[in-house]
Amino acid sequence: MISVHSLSKSFGQLLAVDRVSFTVGPGEVFGLLGENGAGKTTTLRMLATVLRPTQGSATIMGHDLIREPLRVRQIIGVLSAETGLYDRLTAWENVRYFGRLHGMGDAQIRQRSAPLADSLDMASFWHRRAGTLSKGMRQKVCIVRAVIHDPAVLLMDEPTAGLDVTSARAVHDFIHSWKREGRSILFSSHVMSEVEKVCDRIAVIHRGRIVAAGSLDEVKAQAPKRDLEEIFVRLVGETA
């Protein structure tokens, strides 16, 4: 469960996120839809406790971002297309490092990662160095790394950017399976079709502010053609 109340973030004079509020319930995929630079990544970084909000508050599974950052980090998994791996470590060693930082023992990490690696068909490259892996393979390693500690909440920042169709589908399948397990997923993207495919509810974010929010049908109802891309262009145009 994610609960965000009027969250803002400034970098000097630049207001990157402006009083953003939303909630993500258990078993729900919530999409943040916006152009590059709209404030999606900054919002996710604040929720990941990597950036400190300038104003507002947020809780994840009832834990306050600002007062209990270490507790929040224990229950979130973070996945982004932008994050990298340690190229000189194998896929397994990358996962093991993050598992250990979550306080897990090696046996526990092995036990937990085996079915994940199996479901993502990673056996052939599990002990290969990350520097030799394709982008799709690397993203699968990132997925296992992000969820090795069995988080209740997933923060996904454009996790399919730059992936081929097969790899993107693997990510989508993964999201669906985690959703079925009742976890809360915050998913950011600038690709309308992907948001339609994955998310239950969305918020359109532009220049740091949420300009529309609701279920897909509710947002689509705001335009006669009910085409999300057109709605997005209109919403963004209205606030430009």
């Binding site: 990941a48 990597v50 270490l70 979550h102």
Partner: peptide, 14 residues
Amino acid sequence: ERRTLEPLLAMPVS
């Protein structure tokens, strides 16, 4: 440069 800092900062590590 490797973009590994951000996931590291999101770990429950001071």
